Amino acid sequence: MWVTQGGGRPVRNPTGRQLRFGAELRKLRERAGLTATEAGQLMGIKQAQVSNMEAGRVGVSPERVRTLAHHYECSDSVLIESLSDMTSERTRGWWELYRGSLPGLLLDLAELEHHAHAIRDATTARVPGLLQTRAYALEIFRQAVTELSPPDIEHRLSFRIKRQAILYREDDPTPYEAIVHEAALRMKVGGPAVSREQLQHLLDLSEHEHITLRAITFDAGAYPGSGQSIYYAHGPVPQLDTVHLDQSHGIAFLDAEAQLHKYRTLFARMEAVALPPEKSRDLIHHVMREL
């Protein structure tokens, strides 16, 4: 994933995780009130190398991360060690097999999920991707505004199913909390049979200790964030959290402090109007009986 410290050419197309690592280095430098040139002088390296590190294009050793933090007068030891840990992850994930056949931002999402310490997801019109059955996901891809070819659909479908593996790992499944609006539960995606299978799948998943499923009913009315989907991936420390937005014009990743605070607040307010898990299960059973 990362080139060796001080060796090799800069990476031409860094992954989302590499870009995020570099952005965090830049934040540390800017908080210290230093320019890239001044930081390079402190480190005994050229300004271009500092810029390449902050752009995620070259590798950085854990020792250099700690040296940079010292020069930037950063005393947050937990953040420093979290950034140092990011530099030692060199394995290429399964998602790399899809590079060239799927948009790079989708691969960045899989990489983000793989490393997330916990995930919170809130949806209004669809069942969250990580909880979708194969038949449900297939129908979603078939309805894409830009029509997908059969091979493209198959690539996206297999990719989505493989992403779900983080919920089934034996040793350390990712803690996952989903808030799903009643509209998504009642929408007959693919017809009654597909919908019924999807609802049963939600019930089955909700039995897992690391998965929390809660529903918001129509009776809740309008609430902060209504009509909006939120995907919040927790990092090892709050500063490394990431919000993923899947919008009609494409995928976006947000990590600015103000943005993270906004979406934490929105999610908390959604939780306040959502049913508790047991009553959410009752609602799903009720919707299934009406199919």
Score class of each variant (00 low, 15 high):
100 G>A: 06
41 Q>H: 15
23 A>G: 10
179 I>R: 13
130 L>F: 13
114 H>I: 10
85 D>V: 07
109 L>Y: 15
204 D>W: 04
130 L>A: 05
87 T>W: 07
118 A>L: 00
54 E>G: 04
229 S>V: 02
186 R>T: 07
156 R>G: 13
182 E>H: 03
259 Q>N: 12
72 Y>W: 09
163 R>W: 01
85 D>T: 05
162 K>E: 15
69 A>P: 02
48 A>V: 12
212 T>P: 03
2 W>M: 10
51 S>R: 08
42 L>G: 03
205 L>N: 15
24 E>Q: 10
281 R>H: 08
159 F>T: 12
6 G>W: 09
241 D>F: 14
36 A>M: 15
182 E>W: 06
8 G>I: 05
16 G>S: 06
79 L>C: 12
211 I>E: 01
36 A>G: 15
230 I>V: 14
259 Q>G: 05
129 G>E: 01
184 A>Q: 03
29 R>Q: 11
26 R>K: 10
217 T>G: 02
137 A>F: 00
69 A>K: 06
183 A>P: 00
280 S>H: 04
24 E>L: 04
178 A>F: 01
56 G>Q: 08
132 Q>T: 05
269 R>G: 03
207 E>Y: 09
50 V>I: 12
61 S>P: 04
113 E>K: 02
291 L>R: 05
107 L>K: 03
208 H>F: 06
261 H>Y: 10
142 R>W: 01
39 A>E: 09
79 L>S: 07
200 Q>Y: 01
74 C>E: 13
